[in-house]
Design a protein around this nucleic acid. Structure first.
Length: 684
DNA sequence: CTATGCGCCCTTTTT
DNA sequence: GGGCGCATAG
């Protein structure tokens, strides 16, 4: 035991960190600056609870924001706490919600085989609702979903929205929202927010059941607390109410998810919500050079409303910052890659110590191109998510439908893929009959030939599809996952169908390769989780953006490419932030929505990823469609003292002439929107 | 009724 | 560069 305790290496922690590890009882808020050893504190705390305080691992619950962070945390804890069969529960809020709902969702009238809808699926539902209510004039599907999610993540139900009646748009949105929820219920589907909200509803309506589930978690930790929304906060209060042993770790300066409902107020008001909270600040930065930290501190000082925190380094000044300016995007990126190659040649930098960060996913395309030409290996992290690829979604839709026959969004995807002669009209009739008889579509399909509405071939197609799905439902019950899936795909002729969809031979090839990859990923999952049924696999797919990777990858050193959002929580000796231009970073859409402070925090996150070297770049022009847009340096690089730069620092450019034109277009669209609202109000 | 092809729109970040 | 809606042909 003494040996195990030594493994915690408490001696090597500073006084604040040690306090954060050993104050185990009661609420604790750790305000941890970037690079202050936060992850180490969290993992050591868990190990400390188990090894020193003899807390059974099953009583520890740790929630993080991303799967990546959860995996990392779990791995580190496991290496400190060896042996023992029981493990602490470590996962994302959402996976915690799924596990809870697996046991209790039936209390709310949902079936146990619920589907989990992503944004794409949600949009299909919203589109249907808007069509039904004839509300497309007021909302686009995206704007409606966006507004609805906002209300939902703020803890507002449709009824509350309808009662608010602050504006006609609230009333309309309330109606859309109510219908959206009704359809989801009918399809036995939940969205991501439901994964948090439905557990909360169980807490409210069935406190005994919820209490029984939660009572075993006697020590609760939450990482990245600044990124939690209201529901998550409420859930946390519920789980910890009996004992108050909650440790929240976060950094208000790194809050970058307000756009998706995160409420920084959660961390700012933590002390009020959890009376008796001890607060510990970790401001010593072990990661970056003083130059990098000065840049970060100078930048973030431009934000109002902070808890106020300054990072202090221990590593000395280090290298100056660098600014690379290219004639256009292509030139910018070539210069970046040249810089990278020189780095490697002169200083022997390993490619795996380098990260190239950008604001938006589409920016990866350009840099990938140049890296490929220069034969520099790279690893794209995140990006177009595997399970979002069309071909993958189509194949997965079959799995979802086999598992949950009520899942009509998935049904819609597969009903004519591969082509079986079912078009819009047949679909509309199917829906109509189902509504009329208050039955699921699948039930109508099973006896399609009994309805005069369907013409011969269509009726036959519908029945055989229903029969096929029923048959595979039984097969998935008894056969191994991989085998059943392979049989299903081959019986459907998915490979051929996917190929037929594309005309370009290259596209054909990648589409088929994707399906193969999905088959392999399924096999791999089945091998790693021999007990797992279809249900578990679908949950895995819904919650993770990437399939499991085969072992032994990544032996070769590679440059990492990712968005700043994906880079949060990571660190790299050498960091390039490309596209540091106004309207790109900060992103203009975000500015329009009043998100300057959040964009600045995002830039702060980017800067504080770097340990030794930090390089910014920009192209003087950017092409979009047929336009050429002049670029000027991002306000964020201009907020950094020029003296910190080597060579020529970024210089403020002239305000470009294109801006007013874009603004006018926006303003015109907005006034049209409000005109329509006024009309709606007048009409009752 | 369905399949196919063309033109129009926007394109932030993610569980 | 990609997805969706619409028009036309089979």
């Amino acid at each position: 035991m003494a040996g195990a305790l030594n493994a915690l290496a408490l001696d090597s922690l500073n006084a604040h960190q040690r306090e954060a590890v050993t104050l185990t009882e009661g609420p604790l808020l750790v305000l941890a600056g970037a690079g202050s050893g936060k992850t180490r504190v969290v993992t050591t705390r868990i190990a400390y609870l188990i090894l020193a305080r003899r807390v059974p691992p099953g009583e520890v619950l740790a929630m993080t924001f991303t799967n990546k962070a959860a995996r990392e945390m779990g791995g580190r804890v496991a290496s400190m706490v060896k042996g023992g069969r029981e493990r602490p529960s470590i996962g994302t809020f959402h996976s915690f919600g799924v596990r809870f709902l697996r046991r209790h969702i039936e209390l709310l009238g949902y079936g146990p085989d619920f589907s989990i809808y992503d944004e794409h699926d949600q949009l299909q539902v919203v589109r249907e609702v808007l069509g039904e209510m004839d509300a497309q004039t007021w909302y686009t599907d995206k704007s409606a979903l966006y507004a609805l999610q906002r209300a939902k993540s703020g803890g507002l139900g449709p009824q509350e929205l309808l009662q608010l009646q602050d504006s006609p748009s609230d009333v309309l949105l309330g109606a859309v929202y109510r219908e959206y929820q009704r359809i989801l219920r009918e399809m036995n589907a939940v969205d991501f927010e439901d994964l948090l909200q439905l557990p909360m509803r169980v807490c409210r309506d069935h406190p005994e059941a919820a209490g029984r589930y939660f009572e075993r978690f006697r020590y609760v930790l939450v990482d990245e607390y600044q990124d939690t929304n209201k529901t998550q906060h409420d859930l946390l209060r519920h789980v910890t109410a009996p004992h108050g042993n909650v440790c929240a770790v976060g950094d208000d300066d790194q809050s970058i998810y307000a756009w998706r409902g995160a409420d920084p107020g959660n961390i700012l008001n933590f002390e009020e919500d959890f009376p008796g909270t001890r607060v510990i600040r970790l401001e010593r930065n072990y990661r970056s050079t003083d130059t990098i930290l000065s840049a970060a501190n100078q930048l973030i000082a431009h934000n109002p409303e902070r808890k106020g925190k300054t990072l202090h380094g221990i590593r000395g000044p280090g290298k100056p910052l660098e600014w690379i300016e290219g004639d256009d995007e292509r030139d910018e990126l070539e210069k970046v890659v040249t810089h990278l190659k020189l780095n490697k040649l002169r200083a022997g930098t390993s490619l795996s110590s380098v990260a190239i960060l950008y604001r938006s996913n589409f920016q990866s395309r350009g840099i990938e191109e140049v890296l490929r030409e220069e034969a520099i290996p790279y690893l794209l992290v995140g990006g177009t998510r595997f399970y979002d690829r069309r071909e993958i979604k189509d194949a997965v839709a079959y799995l979802r439908l086999v598992h949950n026959p009520n899942d009509e969004v998935s049904l819609n995807r597969v009903i004519n893929f591969p082509g079986r002669g079912i078009g819009r009209t047949t679909r509309a009739r199917l829906l109509e009959i189902a509504r009329r008889e208050s039955q699921p579509c699948m039930a109508v399909m099973r006896r399609a030939r009994g309805y005069r509405e369907f013409t011969g071939p269509a009726a036959q197609s519908l029945e055989s599809l229903a029969a096929l799905l029923d048959r595979y439902r039984a097969r998935f019950e008894r056969e191994p996952l991989g085998e059943a899936f392979r049989a299903l795909l081959s019986e459907l002729g998915i490979h051929r169908a996917v190929e037929k969809e594309k005309s370009d031979p290259k596209a054909k090839e990648t589409a088929v390769a994707l399906v193969h990859e999905l088959e392999q990923a399924t096999d791999l999952y089945a091998r790693r989780h021999p007990q797992a049924r279809l249900k578990a696999y679908l949950e895995r797919i819904a919650l993770y953006t990437m399939p499991e990777e085969p072992d032994g990858r990544g032996g070769q050193p590679m440059v990492r490419l990712m968005t700043v959002h994906s880079a949060k929580g990571l660190e790299f000796p050498h960091v390039y932030v490309i596209g540091m231009a106004e309207d790109v970073f900060p992103h203009r859409r975000s500015l329009e929505e009043g998100g300057e402070a959040e964009e600045r925090r995002l830039a702060y996150v980017a800067i504080t990823r770097a340990e030794k070297q930090l390089v910014f770049s920009m192209g003087k022009e950017r092409r979009r469609l047929r336009e050429v847009i002049p670029q000027r340096p991002s306000r964020f690089v201009l907020e950094i003292d020029p003296a910190l730069f080597d060579g020529v620092p970024p210089v403020a450019g002239d305000a470009a002439a294109y801006r007013p034109i874009q603004e006018q277009k926006k303003a015109a669209a907005r006034s049209r929107f409000f005109d329509q609202l006024r009309k709606l109000q007048a009409g009752g």
